[in-house]
Amino acid sequence: MTRKAIKKDETMVFWRDPLDSDDIHVTRGVVHIIEERCKGCGYCIAYCPRKVLERSKDFNSNGYHPPTVKSEECLDCCYCQLLCPEFAIFTVEAT
């Protein structure tokens, strides 16, 4: 599924470095996936704002492909946690 609206502004490009960019604290998150609960709807993969997730090649015991983490770009926005209908994914702030 290609999503042109999200792909367009996937990475934000600045025309110069903001003056306070050193002071800004960017939150980082760690994604936790409870694979056995996943029913493979793909909402988290399609709607992660940083495109952190991808469909796994492995099955869980119900035969669904759970998501896996493909990059370390998670910003701890918790949107996957809010969107997941199965309570199968959540993020915690990276320490």
């Binding site: 029913k39 493979g40 709807c41 909402y43 969107l83 997941c84 209908p85 199965e86 309570f87």
Partner: peptide, 18 residues
């Protein structure tokens, strides 16, 4: 009671979570 009865792709679970 988890896993619930809602199908794969059903949005009820997301509304419930919100």
């Amino acid at each position: 009671r988890i896993p619930h009865i809602w199908c794969s792709g059903c949005g009820t679970g997301s509304v419930f979570m919100a």
